[in-house]
């Protein structure tokens, strides 16, 4: 029996090495399945929790155009969460179960959403930095070996680009409007820079699951490589806008032709990721409340459907 499994696993590895995608009904190693469930559901949760820091400003958006764009963006995030929950469900985990994991604090999600949004400029910063970082991660992951996840990511990436543009437009407009606007942007940049770098996760040396995940193509690039790509791109954009990167150790390495930063505060990262960031409790409470207060609505719709299905069956 175990020989049989070893054989199937070998065949599975060969398929992946040859660039085939794995589909829901295909045989897959248990660990591949469980890693993907974890990965996709975390990504889905990140979209749903990620609605909250931006949702916080929908009612205060300072112009009609910004209000429409922000609301559409947060709605997109709900849509992305939806695609991702659906693709996780193809692995045999239900949305109910995933919500259970989220609401009990068992599931993780992107650390960035545990920081508060305190100024309107944060809406620009999230688009520029956070969506920018997410795009780097997601375009890489769109080439992963699991078909449903890869397809969901392709669809998501298209929309994320529009989100990033929207964020950059907010920043550019604020900067162009004078000192006050620029100060608002710089203050927001100071708060979001480091947490955004943390989004790429720990250094590769401290990232325990990586080798298997690389082999199975559910992780395609190291955390440090992706983070560096983001830093090189973003530092130059910041300079073009005349913003100061809040890192006294930042310097350009002429040999590697890339930017070196100071060390990330990993104590802070670990605190946030283990549930003790500035907004972890707040975010989960909001989700739990929405879920609990919606229970009677879901039940009513279910009851209505059952009643009417019965009556249409007897009518036939």
């Amino acid at each position: 029996m175990s020989e049989n499994i070893a054989m199937m696993e070998e065949q599975f590895n060969r398929r992946i090495a040859e660039g085939e995608t794995i589909e829901p009904n295909d045989w897959m190693p248990d660990k591949y399945r469980s890693q993907l469930k974890r990965l996709i559901s975390q990504h889905a949760h990140s979209e749903i929790i990620g609605m909250l820091p931006e949702g916080n400003w929908i009612t205060r958006a300072p112009s009609l155009r910004r209000k429409l764009a922000l609301l559409a963006k947060v709605q997109d995030e709900a849509g992305h969460g939806h695609y991702l929950y659906s693709s996780a469900e193809t692995l045999g985990i239900s949305r109910e179960e995933m919500f259970g994991q989220l609401h009990t604090g068992k599931a993780k999600y992107s650390s960035i959403f545990n920081y508060p949004t305190l100024a309107w400029a944060d809406m620009g910063m999230i688009g520029w930095l956070v969506d920018g970082a997410a795009i780097i991660n997601q375009t890489t992951m769109a080439k992963c070996s699991y078909g449903p996840y890869s397809r969901a990511l392709l669809r998501i990436c298209k929309e994320e680009n529009f989100h990033k543009k929207q964020g950059m437009e907010i920043i550019a407009t604020l900067i162009a409007s004078g000192e006050q606007g620029k100060a608002m942007v710089q203050e927001s940049f100071n708060r979001f820079w480091w947490p955004t770098l943390m989004m790429f996760g720990p250094h590769d040396a401290n990232s325990p699951n990586s080798p298997d995940m690389m082999k199975w193509k559910i992780k395609l690039k190291g955390n440090d490589e992706l983070r560096q790509r983001f830093i090189d791109m973003t530092v130059e954009q910041a300079q073009a806008w005349g913003l100061t990167v809040p890192d006294p150790k930042l310097r350009f390495n002429e040999q590697t032709r890339s930017w070196e930063t100071g060390e990330i505060d990993w104590n802070e990262f670990n605190a946030v990721i283990s549930g003790n960031g500035p907004c972890n409790h707040e975010r989960l409470n909001v989700r739990r409340t929405a879920h609990d207060q919606g229970a009677w609505v879901r039940e009513a719709a279910r009851a209505y459907e059952a009643k009417h299905r019965r009556s249409s069956e007897t009518a036939e």
């Binding site: 609301l71 909001v286 929405a290 207060q293 609505v297 879901r298």
Partner: peptide, 20 residues
């Protein structure tokens, strides 16, 4: 739009935002 992120089910977050 105040419902966005707080609706009874994810599909309704999307529907209410659409109408908003």
């Amino acid at each position: 739009s105040e419902w966005c992120g707080h609706a009874p089910i994810l599909e309704e977050d999307i529907a209410l935002s659409n109408i908003a």
